[in-house]
């Protein structure tokens, strides 16, 4: 049935910002129909990975294929065609603040289709019902809590029936109940709509409960890959530090700095180098 079992293939990707390498020979395959988590310490480029996959930035070298289409060299129109098959949930929801909840969810439909109003209304209400916020259709984004904003953004992300749904840090700043709701939705929407989900997060315990596969990134490479259970038993120090939440280890506690005492005793009293 599937010509390509991996809906996204990242092959030997190199990417650097301002001369600082972020990825150096990154290889990842995202399997169709699964929930894949991408984890890693802050600053390892998880969000950058999403920007690469969605074509917001281009890799310096290597190739990225999404749904059988190679990203490099795509025109803007081709890229936009590809993006219609993707949904993305931004960290803060990124709802359009001048539109109501209903209009936010209807936004992609109004921009890309010429459907009659009655059908748009039905589709929007169905999606809002799926995230449990049909009753909030008339509210403005400013009236929503953080968790509700993200659920509305989720309804908006699935309204065009995408093949791939991408979540950028969906749990940041949420209370345990909202977190539970989002977790349930990730799994439920993935299975009910036949999606492929990619979740970038560093909430180890939460994400382990829904993810089928986990990638752990560190130092610009994948350092571990497998099911959440397999990850627990990986002998690597980086993985142990991350999964165990240890303050010091291969990822140092201290940001690189000159010698502590030299710094304290420096005469000029100016700002430290």
């Amino acid at each position: 049935m599937n010509e390509y079992p991996h809906i996204i293939e990242v092959h030997d990707v190199r990417y650097s910002v301002g001369g600082r390498p972020i990825f150096d020979g990154l290889n990842m395959n995202f399997t169709r129909g699964r929930v894949t988590a991408v984890m890693g310490p802050s600053g390892t480029g998880k969000t950058t990975l999403l920007r690469l996959i969605t074509g917001q930035v281009a890799a310096d070298a290597g190739s990225i294929e999404v749904a059988g289409t190679r990203l490099s060299g795509l025109s803007r129109t081709q890229l936009f065609d590809l993006r219609r098959r993707m949904g993305m949930l931004f960290q803060n929801g990124a709802l359009l603040t001048d539109l109501s909840v209903f209009e936010n969810v209807a936004f992609p439909l109004r921009e890309h289709t010429r459907l009659p109003e009655r059908l748009i209304r039905q589709m929007v209400l169905t999606k809002l019902q799926a995230v449990g916020l049909r009753g909030a259709a008339g509210l403005m984004p400013g009236e929503l809590s953080g968790g509700m904003s993200r659920r509305v953004a989720l309804a908006r992300a699935i309204v065009m029936d995408p093949q791939i749904l991408i979540y950028d840090e969906p749990f940041v700043g949420l209370d345990p109940i909202s977190m539970g709701v989002i977790l349930r939705l990730i799994r439920h929407l993935n299975d009910a709509l036949g999606l492929t989900s990619i979740v970038v997060s560093h909430d180890v315990r939460e994400i382990s409960s829904v993810a089928d596969t986990v990638f752990l990134l560190s130092g610009g490479k994948v350092v571990a890959e497998g099911t959440p259970q397999e990850l627990q038993s990986v002998p690597s120090e980086v993985v142990k530090q991350f999964v165990g939440g240890l303050a010091d280890g291969p990822v140092p506690f201290h940001y690189p700095a000159p010698d502590y005492f030299d710094d304290l005793l420096a005469r000029d009293g100016g700002r430290p180098a």
Partner: peptide, 15 residues
């Protein structure tokens, strides 16, 4: 809109 990712969200919705 740029600072709150609204413009990026539009780009991602192919708008």
């Amino acid at each position: 809109m740029r600072a709150t990712d609204q413009l990026s969200a539009m780009e991602m919705m192919a708008v």
